[in-house]
Simulated scan of single mutants.
Amino acid sequence: MSAIHLLDDDQLTGLLRTGNELAFTEIYNRYWDKLYYIAHKLLKDTDAAEEIVQDVFFILWKKRETLTIKSLPAYRPLWPAILSIVRCPKKKTQKNKKTSLAG
Score class of each variant (00 low, 15 high):
residue 8 D to W: 03
residue 89 P to E: 08
residue 51 E to T: 01
residue 83 L to I: 15
residue 8 D to N: 14
residue 23 A to K: 12
residue 94 Q to I: 00
residue 61 W to C: 03
residue 31 Y to R: 03
residue 99 T to K: 05
residue 40 H to S: 08
residue 89 P to Q: 05
residue 86 V to N: 09
residue 41 K to A: 13
residue 87 R to T: 05
residue 77 P to M: 02
residue 19 G to P: 09
residue 49 A to N: 01
residue 35 L to P: 03
residue 78 L to C: 12
residue 26 E to N: 05
residue 49 A to R: 00
residue 45 D to K: 14
residue 10 D to N: 07
residue 9 D to C: 02
residue 20 N to S: 11
residue 32 W to Y: 15
residue 91 K to M: 13
residue 18 T to I: 09
residue 29 N to D: 15
residue 19 G to S: 09
residue 30 R to Y: 10
residue 102 A to I: 00
residue 16 L to G: 07
residue 38 I to K: 06
residue 4 I to F: 08
residue 32 W to M: 03
residue 18 T to M: 11
residue 82 I to S: 08
residue 6 L to A: 07
residue 47 D to I: 04
residue 79 W to L: 01
residue 32 W to L: 05
residue 19 G to R: 09
residue 71 S to P: 06
residue 1 M to Q: 10
residue 85 I to D: 15
residue 13 T to A: 08
residue 7 L to A: 03
residue 20 N to P: 04
residue 98 K to H: 04
residue 50 E to H: 05
residue 10 D to Q: 11
residue 88 C to F: 13
residue 55 D to L: 13
residue 10 D to F: 02
residue 72 L to T: 03
residue 14 G to I: 05
residue 39 A to E: 05
residue 63 K to I: 01
residue 25 T to Y: 08
residue 47 D to C: 02
residue 5 H to P: 01
residue 49 A to M: 00
residue 55 D to K: 14
residue 59 I to M: 11
residue 100 S to E: 11
residue 79 W to I: 01
residue 50 E to D: 08
